[in-house]
């Protein structure tokens, strides 16, 4: 079954974690879906690297956080917050690739 991430999540957001890292949060609506996604390893370093077109080693971490039915991925910012050529000082508008993410369960 094809599932659009935005249909099963309450929150999909991006934000700086300090000026050199960008962190992506997905808060799922249902614990059952969280468990399924976790068991099937849907969100991993490879997925995030592909969605954001960055090298896998630039994906710093993927953490599944059952307390909040949440998945967190953190990547190296291509440019530090506020650096020349940088586009999003707060990093708060880098979530769209996740919103458009469709996966198979």
């Amino acid at each position: 079954m094809k599932i659009a991430l935005r249909n099963v999540a309450n929150v999909i957001r991006s934000k700086n974690a300090g000026p050199f890292e960008l962190t992506l949060d997905i808060l799922l609506k249902e614990k059952e879906m969280f468990d399924k996604i976790k068991a099937a390893d849907i969100i991993n370093k490879k997925t995030i690297a592909a969605l954001y077109r960055v090298a896998e080693e630039d994906v710093i971490s993927i953490v599944y956080f059952p307390n909040a039915k949440a998945i967190k991925a953190t990547i190296v910012r291509p440019l530090a917050s506020g650096a020349l050529g940088e586009r999003d000082v707060y990093g708060a508008q880098q979530h769209a690739p996740l919103m458009d993410f469709v996966f198979e369960l």
Partner: peptide, 17 residues
């Protein structure tokens, strides 16, 4: 709520644990 407070633990952090 337990969800709102635990979810906040994620905010702006690399690792929530």
């Amino acid at each position: 709520t337990p969800t709102s407070v635990s979810a906040h633990t994620l905010y702006e952090k690399t690792d929530p644990y």
